[in-house]
Design a protein around this nucleic acid. Sequence first.
DNA 1: GCCGTTTTCGGCCCGACTGTTTTCAGTCG
Length: 575
Amino acid sequence: MDNAEIARILRETADLLEIKGENPFKIRAYHNGADIAGNHPHELGLLDEAGLREIPGIGKDLAARIQEIGQTGDTEFHRQLVAEFPPTILDLLHLQGVGPKTVATLYRDLGIRTLDDLERAAHDGRIRALKGMGAKKEALILKALDERKRFAGRHLLAHAHDASAALQDYLRERAPGATIEAVGSLRRGCDTCGDLDLLATGAPATLMDDFIGYPLVERVLGHGDTKSSVLVQGGFQADLRLVAPESRGAAMQYFTGSKAHNIALRDRAIGLGFKLNEYGLFRVADEGRVAGEREEDIYDALGLAWVPPELRELRGEIEAAAARTLPRLLEVSDLRGDLHMHTTETDGKDGIRTMAIAAREAGLEYIAITDHSQSLAMANGLDERRAIEHAQRIRAVDAEGLGIRLLAGVECDILPDGSLDLADDCLAALDIVVASVHSAFNQERQEMTDRVLRAIGNPHVDVLGHPTGRKLLKRQAYPIDVEAIIDAVGRAGAAIEINSQPHRLDLNDVHASLARQRQVPIVISSDSHSRNGFGFLRWGAAVARRAWLQPADVLNTRSFAEFRASLRRHRRPPS
DNA sequence: GCCGTTTTCGGCCCGACTGTTTTCAGTCG
């Protein structure tokens, strides 16, 4: 039983306790336990009680629950809670703007158990009749339902990657000689993915049976000799295709897409007297095979350089491949620093030194510790005094010579009027300031744009953090003139962030590409909230690659000295 | 449910915002 499953059961326990209206601190303890399990480096199910109780936040009860999950796969407590409510009720809780009290009321007073029940009730005007609710709440629920439908069946890149990787491991064990690889939107590094597309070459026909026998399969949608589809736990649809080795490259190309890229490629093939399909590239004249085993050969035969999957969106990559001007894309290993992370001083899970050591072990040469500022009260944000004291502690750790350099920074809130949450002299005393919006998302486009422009106008702001505030599959970006923001950041000599959190990836690929074209400096940051967060940089790097970024476009590919010198506070503003 | 203790109880990050209210409840972060 892995930590993710332990975390899931604890979180579900917390959610159900919340709907029941239990003691909020008990609920918090379970949520906290879920976080701990999800972030812990060792398998908690293997620890004994003493070992578990050494972990802060795990006491007598949680230790027992975790052991029970490790031994039996679930807890009696959790099973009892699940039995008290319809199993679909947690779907309601995950709607934006619907919390445990609302779910409890909906269930108790209207017998609402499913999203369909809820939608009917909202359409019938039955929600507004409830005490404490009105027409606006009803509209809010309908909007949340609509958003959920729009996002249904899609998954965050990181989640799709994890689910796909587990399935690939399982298949490789059963067909050691075969090549198994992920294709589709996952291979292209899209920020969200629909189906999990897998390709197997050189595999025995029995692999299809193994595939539908994967323990996490909930339903078999189709089962043939060369293609099968299943529904996997977590709401993923997974497709597996079996192809002959001589078609591997063609199949990879075909199933990686995008559709638009493929159409353009096939069009080009026709123009050259070829036919391109998932089995290979063939001459029209005599149907002779020109290429098929390797992707590179197919592109080559079409007069093109091999196109990295992240660029296959028909955004000029075919012309660039023909002209041999494709960029040398950034790799995650090019990143030498990470400029956005949190510690236990605010809402992080680990202290300064732990974060520094973990970053060093992740291969980084320098980091900036950027805890939240005071207006983010729920995160225990820093006021000026604490920010300065925290900076002293960060610099003290830096002075220890851990083999990684530390910058003392802050993630300073941009207040609704565009002023910053900390006084200028405080910001000036730090090494780096990331400024971000965390509140009042409902401002009008012009108001929001003016707000962020005003913040960028503050000379102490070095980096604009997660510039559009989007939460993938959950919340749209707030309305803002991104182009004006990018230009303002460039004029100010500041930098703009690609936040690597799987649910943010903000800037997105399109806007990051715009920043590149405007030659606005970009940083790729993890926004880590624990020592395990540095792995997220690969998702930020995926966005960067989709934006055609080269190492030189990104400030934190530079050495520590060069990076520091490139910060706005150490540059003369362009006159 | 966890924790720390002046140690077996009492405190536990809380402010902003919204929509419902007429003094506040629920949600979010």
